[in-house]
Amino acid sequence: MKKTILTVFCVAVFIMSIITCVAYADGEQVLVIVNNSVSQADISAKDLGNIFLGKKNSWDGGQKAVPVTLESGSAHETFLKLYVKKNGSQFSTFWKQAVFTGQGIPPKSVSSEEEVVKFVAANPGAVGYISPATAHDGVKILAVK
């Protein structure tokens, strides 16, 4: 009985690996925006991801980095996939673990891209992400190397 369950599980794992690998290619984009006080013009993908994981807390000049995230949506998933290397569920679990084990406080989270722009424009050191089509007056675009 135990061997049968193990065999069925292993076969299922193999099949689902193939299916999920095929389903991953796409060409979505996001804009990374920062408050006008941020002097940096660009950032590496790894450093950007680390800011949203709480591993990097300041910009190169020493100014405090203040990340803001979306609660959900395609821009959120795309940004996490490109720069944080996690999906929304993994990102949420990462921060729940950090909160309940005392490792850190998650970034502020908002429900719309307009709120992201508003937050980034109003807070020195702030960084967020939006879809390319979203209006982003009052903030700077940060290039990701």
Partner: peptide, 9 residues
């Protein structure tokens, strides 16, 4: 171990 009591993790 750090998250052992945090069931939803």
């Amino acid at each position: 171990n750090k998250g052992r009591d945090i069931d939803m993790l």
